[in-house]
Nucleic acid binder design. Sequence first.
DNA 1: TATTGTTATACTCTATAACTATA
DNA 2: TATAGTTATAGAGTATAACAATA
Lengths: 159, 159
Amino acid sequence: MPHAKRAADDLTPLGKLDEGALHGLLGYQLAQAAILTTGVFTHAAGQPLELRPVEFTILQLVNENADITPGRLAKALAMTAPGITIWLDRLEGRGLVLRERSTTDRRAQNVSLTRSGQALVSQALKNVLAEERSVLQSLSEGERTMLLELLHKVARLRK
Amino acid sequence: MPHAKRAADDLTPLGKLDEGALHGLLGYQLAQAAILTTGVFTHAAGQPLELRPVEFTILQLVNENADITPGRLAKALAMTAPGITIWLDRLEGRGLVLRERSTTDRRAQNVSLTRSGQALVSQALKNVLAEERSVLQSLSEGERTMLLELLHKVARLRK
DNA sequence: TATTGTTATACTCTATAACTATA
DNA sequence: TATAGTTATAGAGTATAACAATA
């Protein structure tokens, strides 16, 4: 007797499709939720400031971690080394980040933000935080906090 | 006084970078959590059954929604029409789905699974559910349920 | 020899525009 | 005219392999 009972809202948004077993799959629910947040990012910061989500994240991680290396950025974002090189090339070309050879290990590089990069990422962060808060109004403060904490807990399970 | 106090685990996984304000951004936490679930999917079903995440989701949505149309699939997955066409082409080429003209509206198509498609998606679902459960053991049953429900609530905010 | 990072190249995925056929 | 779906084409993003410099 497959899918006997089912909640009335056990559906995908737009399409109003029956999710069935997908309802209990974390990967699927993450992807569905990300459709919303990707739209929020694009509207609040991506389009007005010409930033891709990954570019924003790189800028913010550099902003919070002084003299970070491309290698550590690649690991944090689960990207390959050539991948991070290309993004840093673009950001450097726009005058948002600086790459300097490490003095202790001349193979490595220290990445930092320019004034312009700091200003841009600050504005982007402000915009996205505000729009997320606005869009997530139907969740209580407790629900938003709980959601972020649980996601953080999941993210930290990465080896 | 920027980022005054900060919890000891306010860090990204692998890189152990300071997330700072990113900690409170839903879009970022979703992306970080998805790195884990994408790995779980690939290991449990993607590689052994030669399925992309999007292919698995299409198969499962078709499985749960009889005679669904490509248009509705496209909306549910936030894809363009040419995008869904290509994925359905591939799945049909592998003998996993069937496309038949609708009798009531001859522009539309009814998508359904073949026996082979049903068997494959069932196996994939079983594999992924089992591995997610295994990987998420450090979360309590209540936490896993709460996380899925909150994500579903966020996903349904899509207009 | 191993590590950090770049370059070269090809592949996957996606998007837009133009098209066919039905309504 | 509008809608469902396809085809054609180009672009964005990513991965692998080969490389240079340093440890």
